[in-house]
Nucleic acid binder design. Structure first.
Length: 765
DNA sequence: GAGCACTGC
């Protein structure tokens, strides 16, 4: 496999060395402090040695470029472009401390590298030694008078830990809490822990956090870290966000669907509070160096403040020719680096998915066994989200002396997991991502090119502690053709949940809601149609509002169709069972399927399988898990992912609590072994996701007659039931139905006679 | 007939 086509790499645009500890400061506009930014011109070529055809032929000295043979050129989108003409700009230099680390979730520690907690005195000293501290007064003077500000700061600028404290110390929180949102729960927890330490307080008092299943706040809490989704949920019961004096939207450049909706929510809340003469709401958008103009424009030309962080220089190489086989190119690159670089320098490779990663890991291990003497040994570590937790943790352990760590990862290592010690990044430029087609309403999961932003994010993983090197397995010309930024999530997903939430907040017109990046009208319309089918909407005088059912649906942290399933379940006397099934469907699969132990898995799983489909099978697994005391040992023996199973238990408890609330008035009954009523309940709520067996033995969806197939992971894979409901359609090579339940066609017509009459009519014409 | 990026409430 090795040595067929060699990717030859050439030096190209390198990341600008934005850092340096302290570079001379120059006076900028309006007296702001501005740092000079070196651009190193020129470029040169680098040709790696041809790798050997077979491992045992590997030459002992494969050439690797000495650093002087290349020079970094243009870097990521320059900060010059970040400035709005006439905008007030503050620039600072900060070393990279005060970052994210440490902390602990109660049920399970977050997947971050443990950090040693310094002594309290040292913490305060360290805080004061941050250059951001020198600009504290200037920064506060600006922020104090602004309703809105956009704050640009690179990784390690310390903005997320320091700014909330500055605002607190300036008394901003006297009339309301300072909220800091994060896209990920681990980040919210570890940041709260860090800031609480810095303030020398007990976590949950002055500084706290709120994430799903875990609220560590009290009446004393003035600085609150929370996930963006959590603040959005709070906005349902209080759209003016009255508790808060300031909302900081951090990591805004990631453009998660929740942050995007929050942009509109805080903007509306701010305006409303102003109109009503209430306490003003301060909004601070924090981001890496992207999309500044967009943020600033959206918030009525809010000033942009710039914080410079410490970023070690990273050299970037592109291939000379396009690579048709990026896997092969990655393999070659890894072994070229491996033969040249000291073994203490680790390599991070970005691939697209589990299968690819496992295959590549195996190949690397095989090749590494046959390397010549004198070549370092290699520890190959796969990394992806569905990998069991214990195995994920291994990427943080140091390799034994003389061993090099090679981490082969999905985009999970782009943002979610930070690994120290990475010197080399190998970027294939590919990612597996969901695309949404509003015409068909289908989500397609496909391997595609990364965006420029994403490529720079990957590159940045090489320069966390020291200078680094990034090999891009595509040409510079190809890179120039990449999309500038990843399409915001809100333009790529089904919007039913978002629309339900906006309606629950009583947004006057969801069709014209002020999104920063508007989803297409078709896209919004599709979501409205879906909610309408579920009986959530009322049309009154051109105004869309929620029905009582719709309001109840919004109370569940679930996809609308699953919320509806729960709400229908009392009618079928099976709420106990439906709560379990919905919980199982709303987390990652509890089934662990290591490909190497397939037969073993099949043997063990047999006892749970129900001919009625996946939902009932999952229910059987959950019940046995509970009846046997639900321990880890059982999980291991039965190839069940215990982490996800624990999560199912938590979700179920939360959903049950919601059902028991007064306004829900839901009896929680069990069907007592009557599986048919459970299937009827599923048929009544998922009637728009059904497929029927065709005369030729294939399946087609009932509504649009789209050809579909049973996913190989389904217990019904080898069966041919006449009619099924499914919970998800997944487009990969084919259009697959996942999580199926056998139903009676008659139940469907019974559930939605009008819908099916209409569908039949359109089918005939 | 043969397969699943990543978050989050």
């Amino acid at each position: 496999m090795l040595g067929v086509a060699v990717p030859s790499l050439k030096a190209g645009g390198g990341r600008v060395a934005v850092g340096g500890r302290r570079r001379p400061l120059a006076r900028g506009r309006e007296g702001a402090v501005r740092a000079s930014c070196p651009h190193l011109p020129g470029r040169s070529c680098w040709r790696p040695r041809v790798p050997p055809r077979r491992p045992r032929d590997m030459p002992e000295e494969a050439g690797f470029p000495p650093a002087k043979r290349f020079r970094p050129g243009s870097g990521p989108p320059s900060r010059a472009g970040s400035f709005r003409p006439g905008g007030r700009v503050v620039m600072l230099l900060t070393p990279g401390s005060g970052g994210k680390g440490g902390g602990g979730r109660r049920q399970q520690p977050p997947l971050v590298q443990p950090s040693v907690s310094p002594y309290p005195e040292a913490v305060e000293l360290q805080r004061r030694s941050l250059p951001i501290f020198q600009a504290r007064g200037q920064l506060l003077a600006q922020l104090r008078n602004l309703d809105c500000a956009v704050l640009i700061g690179e990784t390690g600028s310390g903005k997320t830990t320091q700014i909330p404290q500055y605002l607190y110390e300036a008394g901003i929180s006297r009339q309301g809490i300072i909220a800091v949102t994060q896209p990920r729960r681990v980040a919210a927890i570890s940041l709260a822990t860090r800031v609480s330490d810095e303030k020398r307080t007990v976590l949950g008092k002055l500084v706290g956090y709120t994430v799903r299943f875990d609220d560590v706040t009290s009446e004393d809490t003035k600085i609150k870290f929370l996930t963006d989704g959590m603040l959005l949920r709070e906005a349902i019961s209080d759209s003016m966000l009255r508790k808060y004096s300031c909302v900081i939207l951090d990591e805004a450049h990631e453009r998660t669907i929740h942050t995007d909706v929050l942009f509109g929510v805080v903007k509306t809340a701010q305006k409303k509070r102003k109109e009503l003469g209430k306490l003003p709401l301060k909004v601070i958008v924090m981001s890496a160096t992207m999309d500044v103009d967009l943020f600033s424009q959206y918030f009525n030309g809010a000033p942009v403040l710039y914080l410079e962080g410490r970023q070690h220089p990273i050299q970037v190489f592109y291939t000379k020719q396009p690579q048709h086989d990026y896997l092969h190119a990655a393999l070659v690159s890894v072994f070229q680096i491996h033969q040249e670089a000291p073994s203490s320098q680790d390599i991070l490779v970005f691939l697209t998915g589990q299968e690819e990663i496992e295959a590549m890991s195996k190949t690397c291990r095989d090749i590494a066994k046959h390397l010549p003497d004198g070549c370092p040994s290699m520890v190959v570590l796969p990394l992806y989200a569905s990998l069991p937790y214990a195995q994920q943790l291994r990427v943080f352990q140091g390799a034994p002396k003389g061993y090099r760590k090679v981490i082969i990862s999905t985009n999970i290592a782009e943002t979610s997991i930070t690994i120290t010690g990475i010197k080399y990044v190998v970027d294939t430029g590919m990612v597996k991502a969901k695309k949404y087609n509003p015409d068909s309403g289908l989500e397609v999961l496909a391997v595609q090119r990364v965006s420029k932003t994403q490529a720079w994010q990957r590159t940045g993983r090489a320069g966390r502690e020291d200078s680094g090197i990034c090999y891009r397995l595509y040409t510079e010309e190809e890179f120039e053709k990449f999309e500038k930024m990843t399409m915001p999530e809100i333009q790529r997903c089904n919007l039913a949940s978002v629309m339900l939430q906006l309606l629950a907040m009583k947004v006057p017109n969801v069709l014209t809601f002020d999104f920063m990046s508007k989803p297409s009208p078709d896209h919004i319309q599709a979501a409205i149609a879906q909610l309408d089918l579920l009986g959530a909407l009322e049309h009154k005088e051109d105004q869309l509002t929620l029905t009582p059912i719709g309001r109840k649906m919004a109370a569940f942290p679930l996809e609308p169709k699953f919320a509806k399933t729960i709400l229908l379940s009392p009618k079928f006397h099976c709420t106990e069972e439906i709560l379990t099934i919905v919980s199982l469907l709303s987390v990652d699969s509890v089934l662990h399927n290591p490909p190497s132990r397939r037969e073993e898995v099949q043997g063990v799983r047999k006892k749970f399988i129900s001919s009625e489909g996946d939902h009932i099978t999952l229910l059987n697994i959950y019940r046995t898990f509970k009846n046997t005391g639900g321990n880890k040992e059982w999980c291991k023996e039965n190839f069940v992912n215990s982490k996800n199973m624990t999560l199912v238990t938590e979700v179920r408890a939360q959903l049950r609590d919601i059902c028991l609330k007064k306004q829900m008035s839901m009896p929680i009954l069990s069907s007592r072994g009557d599986m048919e009523s459970i299937r009827r309940c599923l048929a009544h709520s998922l009637f728009m996701s059904t497929a029927e067996l065709q005369p030729d033995g294939t399946y087609a969806t009932t509504d649009t007659h789209q050809p579909v197939a049973i996913h190989p992971s389904s217990v019904l894979f080898h069966c041919k039931p006449a009619c099924v409901v499914y919970t998800e359609l997944l487009h990969t090579n084919k259009c697959y139905m996942r999580d199926l339940c056998v139903v009676d066609a008659e139940w469907l017509y019974e559930a939605a006679p009008e819908y099916f009459r209409r569908k039949l009519r359109t089918a005939k014409s």
